[in-house]
Design a binder for these strands. Structure first.
Length: 113
DNA sequence: GGATTGACCGGAA
DNA sequence: GTTCCGGCCAATC
């Protein structure tokens, strides 16, 4: 099958298609994406995003606890601040990207699928 | 065909 | 709050 020629597999295409339909200011967790598609798993979705995610709004796919994608916290935070995604309130004065999380109870996209 | 990797998840300590 | 661990599954070697 595909995969060696730089083209996404059919599972990867499904992940990318769903990711591209997440509304601005909303998010899905990696596990949510797999659940909506009805195939694969959270880790497999992460694998696809790492390999093919550059063309879609990848920052709208986050961890189930609201943490931003590992290794991409800075870029993701900038995007979310720009589009008004609900974030958890921080108490201290210092704002570090690593400590920022999505408020999943408010930001999760519930109309998916 | 098998082994390893990883932008994960949920529970346990 | 944290770290650790087993399970998970597509992509990659």
């Amino acid at each position: 099958m595909r995969g060696r020629d730089g083209l996404p597999t059919s599972f990867a295409e499904d992940v990318l298609d769903l990711s591209s339909r997440i509304p601005q200011g909303r998010v899905l967790s990696y596990g949510d994406v797999a659940a909506v598609l009805g195939s694969g798993g959270a880790r497999a979705v992460g694998t696809v995003m790492a390999r093919f995610g550059s063309d879609v709004p990848w920052w709208r796919v986050v961890r189930s606890d609201g943490h931003l994608p590992a290794g991409h916290e800075r870029e993701a935070l900038a995007r979310h601040l720009a589009e008004g995604t609900p974030l958890v309130r921080r108490r201290g004065p210092t704002i570090v990207a690593r400590d920022r999380r999505i408020d999943m109870s408010r930001a999760r996209w519930t109309d998916a699928g």
